[in-house]
Simulated scan of single mutants.
Amino acid sequence: MQALGESSAGVTTIAVMTSWPDTRILDLFGISAPIVLAPMAGPVLADLTVAVAQAGGLGSLPCALLPADRIRAELTEIRSRTDAAINLNFFCHTTPEPDPVADLAWRARLAPYYVEAGLDPSVTPVASNRNPFDGGACEIIEEFRPEAVSFHFGLPEAALLERVRATGAKVLGCATTVAEARWLADRGADLIIAQGAEAGGHRGMFLSTDVGTQVGTFALVPQVVDAVDVPVIAAGGIGDPRAIVAALALGAAAVQIGTAYLYTPEARIAVGHRKALLEQNADDATALTNVFTGRPARGIVNRAMRELGPMSEATPPFPRAGGALAPLRSATEPAGSTDFMSLWSGQAGTLSARYAGLSAAELTRTLAREALARL
């Protein structure tokens, strides 16, 4: 970037940005745009990952919902279509001990909805599951050797983390507070994703469970930048070029974008979820809720969130809460209802709606081009 100055004729010149202000992440992964696809479990599979990677961003594949054979299948598909850098994402939660009392209490709370939907509340639903990172997942990383591996809810145990690092992959950790950012950096994270309270989907919080103390993105990012020596990726509320420019101005080396990509045709989301996103307006609320999984996550407010929460002390620990809600979604979704569907969305979802209909590759290039123009 050229500084503001005077020409030989004494006329003031204005700087023109021809490249990104911080190229550390671009250089690290060989990408051309400082845009990371948020690893949204469910909506993101190979098509979306490849599209973002081919357009110059860092494509991500969320693995927490996928069995090992499916992860391998998706990675094989990705590698057959691009050799660009990709990021694999995993959860690092601890599987909770069985708690029949909590499970029964939650099912009792949901029983009236079962009766309303014509379901038998006495039938035990299939348990909900999210796969925490383990030795089997580590073997997949050793086999495919992705350029980046990101973790939600902390980091895996030291021995597993060392195996990941031995493959050459850079380790990304998600922090929702400065304390979490320092914790991640002290344990060897190469990059920090600073996830503000505006972000859609699950909060990456792991040192605290108090959602009331969560910090917004544009207050969190500069504090994390000042607290750690590694590059910072801003996440949450980044839905258009203005937000990208703001995040970079606050010291972020890149941004992670999720909700904007839910509008693309490559996103694997339910018809009702897509409709809710498209029909949002600036007055529609999103909220943090734990009723769908047992952990705080941000989504568009619907009946389940209004009547059961949005934050409920009755939910079993993550991820068991979702099992009892699944039959209600299955029974009501065919009629077009989103009452019991997790409608994940960040607070800036409406800012991205004007890009609806663009492919993921077009969206990536458009956001990068318009952000550079603003810079």
Rank of each mutant, 00 (worst) to 15 (best):
residue 117 A to W: 13
residue 118 G to W: 12
residue 118 G to Y: 14
residue 119 L to P: 03
residue 121 P to G: 04
residue 122 S to N: 14
residue 122 S to M: 14
residue 123 V to M: 11
residue 123 V to E: 15
residue 124 T to C: 09
residue 127 A to H: 07
residue 128 S to R: 07
residue 129 N to I: 13
residue 129 N to T: 13
residue 129 N to P: 00
residue 130 R to P: 00
residue 133 F to S: 00
residue 136 G to I: 10
residue 136 G to M: 11
residue 136 G to Y: 07
residue 136 G to Q: 12
residue 139 E to K: 14
residue 140 I to D: 01
residue 141 I to K: 10
residue 144 F to Q: 03
residue 145 R to G: 02
residue 148 A to M: 10
residue 149 V to L: 02
residue 149 V to G: 03
residue 150 S to M: 09
residue 150 S to I: 04
residue 151 F to T: 01
residue 152 H to P: 01
residue 154 G to S: 05
residue 157 E to M: 09
residue 157 E to I: 05
residue 159 A to W: 11
residue 161 L to I: 06
residue 162 E to C: 04
residue 162 E to Q: 09
residue 163 R to E: 00
residue 164 V to Q: 11
residue 164 V to I: 14
residue 164 V to W: 08
residue 165 R to S: 01
residue 167 T to P: 11
residue 167 T to Q: 04
residue 168 G to D: 00
residue 168 G to K: 11
residue 169 A to I: 12
residue 170 K to H: 15
residue 171 V to H: 07
residue 173 G to R: 13
residue 177 T to W: 09
residue 178 V to P: 13
residue 178 V to I: 13
residue 179 A to H: 08
residue 181 A to T: 08
residue 183 W to C: 09
residue 184 L to E: 04
residue 185 A to C: 14
residue 187 R to Q: 08
residue 187 R to G: 04
residue 188 G to V: 03
residue 188 G to S: 06
residue 189 A to Q: 09
residue 192 I to H: 05
residue 197 A to P: 06
residue 198 E to S: 02
residue 198 E to I: 05
residue 199 A to Q: 05
residue 199 A to N: 07
residue 199 A to F: 01
residue 200 G to C: 03
residue 201 G to N: 04
